[in-house]
Amino acid sequence: MIKDLDISDLRTITEVIKKTHSYDFTNYAMSSLKRRIVRVLENYKISVETLISRLQNQEGFIEEFLTEITVNVTEMFRDPSFWLALKKEVIPSILVNHENFKIWHAGCSSGEEVYSMAILLKEMGILDKVTLFASDIDPVILDRAKKGEYPLKNMELNEKNYIRFDGATSLKDYYTEKDGKAIMDKSLAQAVTFKKHDLVNGPAFTKVDLILCRNVMIYFNQKLQNDVLNKFHSSLFKYGYLAIGSKESLIWCDIVKKFILVNNEEKVYRKIKD
């Protein structure tokens, strides 16, 4: 981490990526992007010049790079009180008007929250009524989400979260153990469509009733947050919900006026104007 990267280096790298590939990192939050790129330089033991040359010329390198610099640290039932709010408030409120509804996990990473949602819906007895979409910019991590196999050592924390969420049984009932891995029950992901989608450059998504995008927009600057929030606005039905991370705020975005904050503690917004 002590290795330092100039802002000019950072700009050059993001410009090269933008020119050579279809990804745009120019409006990512600077401090974390810098740490991620320094991490790539250290892991590959290469200079900035070599990195740039590989990004321009080496077949397949951009995919590796993408996996390295996107943050894929997540947990099942992270912030159990949030999942409780979904179970007790948000989903019952959707059910008042819709027997069938749609959920989009935007930036689903390795899928832990997708499986958490499927478990929650299953325990509410409505898994077969709900269509789930899970998207991520990184096809490698999306494949991992689709597979639903996690290191067994992660399951201890996941189980703790699940207990705090007041789950109906034990997480163990939703996976089998094999070769040091927890393999999630295939029936959970049956209703999930996994889709590569870039929040920055991609189009608005299909219309849904609930969007989960927790701790994704913290990696964007305010301009990009505003752009993405516009996309979320057009991808939500009127009175649909948007959940972001507990320490994220959208008060800096213009379009936030078209939402109300229905749960301040868990940062759940509701679209009230088209």
Binding site: M30, S31, S32, V73, I218
Partner: peptide, 11 residues
């Protein structure tokens, strides 16, 4: 961050 703001991350 430059510009005197806080940024959070889950790295």
């Amino acid at each position: 961050e430059l510009g005197n703001t806080i940024s959070l991350s889950t790295e």
